[in-house]
């Protein structure tokens, strides 16, 4: 019996197969809290129908064009599962639970049950693995999105005064993040035509050579564009580390606190505050 025969078998017993399959999924512990049962039934029916069509044209090569509809459906299903927070094994169960009802069917109707079961199991294994792969890539895309939004959230550039920007850095700095900080700062300098930018590192727990290097690069890049950078909020340990590491900060202005840096910036701008006359 060839793949066409299996397709025939699928087509003739579609309704019964679907019932048994959905029942098997329910037994395997369907996550009704996360997935609607009717959605699962619809998905199962659709997969079964597409499987039948695809199997009729040969089941050896999953990369063939006629398997594309099945793969697309699995992709969507796994992606939604991963978004909903279903575990990988539960996602795989969706495909693997089709084995039992299908094998029974083959055993009852096939002339060579062993050969057909082997072919089917190979096919379903491949489909199961494929759905896991999709599940994983769905997860990864979620992680990536979160990472990106976290990076954006963590690097706000604020305007302190006309022509004075501040960028308060909080948390550990790595090259990736420093790169984003650098770009955000430079873009903002262009946008607001600010002459002075204050980089506040009060919230940075540790400074190593890499971080220091990145800071210097940022300062130099800003200088090339015509803006001046002031580094503020250097804690005692960090100052000691910078000296210990032998990092040359060059002619970068460093100030203890953001307030001090702000004062310097205002002074350079020629802005002065005049106390209101007391009544």
């Amino acid at each position: 019996m060839s793949s066409t025969a299996i397709a025939e078998l699928l087509r003739n017993h579609e309704a019964t197969l679907l019932d048994v399959w959905v029942a098997a999924q329910r037994n395997a512990g369907m996550r009704l809290d996360l997935m609607n049962e009717s959605t699962i039934v619809t998905n199962s029916a659709e997969l079964l129908r597409k499987l039948t069509t695809a199997a009729a044209q040969g089941m050896d090569d999953l990369d063939a064009a006629h398997w594309q509809p099945v793969k697309t459906l699995l992709e969507q299903f796994s992606f939604n599962q991963s978004r909903a927070g279903v575990s990988p094994s539960e996602t795989a169960t969706f495909v693997f639970s089709l084995k039992e009802p299908l094998f029974k069917l083959i055993q009852e109707h096939s002339a060579e049950p062993l050969v057909d079961i082997w072919a089917t199991t190979q096919l379903l294994d491949k489909l199961g693995l494929y759905s896991i792969e999709c599940f994983m890539s769905g997860r990864e895309s979620v992680i990536r999105e979160q990472q990106e939004s976290m990076l954006e959230l963590s690097t706000p550039v604020v305007e302190l005064w006309d022509g004075i920007l501040a960028i308060p850095l909080i948390g550990a700095l790595d090259s990736n993040r420093t790169q984003i900080v650098m770009e955000a700062l430079l873009e903002k300098i262009v946008e607001t035509e600010s002459d002075i930018a204050i980089i506040d590192i009060t919230g940075v727990p540790t400074v190593d050579t890499m971080v220091a290097q990145h800071l210097i690069k940022t300062v130099t890049a800003a200088k090339l564009m015509g803006a001046q950078c002031i580094i503020s909020g250097i804690r005692p340990q960090i100052a000691a580390t910078i000296v210990h590491l032998g990092v040359e900060l060059g002619d970068v202005i460093t100030k203890a606190s953001l307030a001090d840096a702000f004062r310097v910036a205002l002074k350079q701008q020629g802005t002065r505050f005049i106390a209101a006359t007391s009544r």
Binding site: L186, I189, V190, T220, A221, A222, K223, L224, G226
Partner: peptide, 27 residues
């Protein structure tokens, strides 16, 4: 030198060219 784009500034820094001794301005 005026109006250097951020991407250009970053590239020059990465290349190790900090243009010492050249005055710069935003516009």
């Amino acid at each position: 030198v005026v109006g250097m784009q951020p991407a250009v500034a970053i590239t020059l820094v990465e290349l190790g060219l900090s243009l010492e001794g050249i005055a710069t301005a935003l516009n």
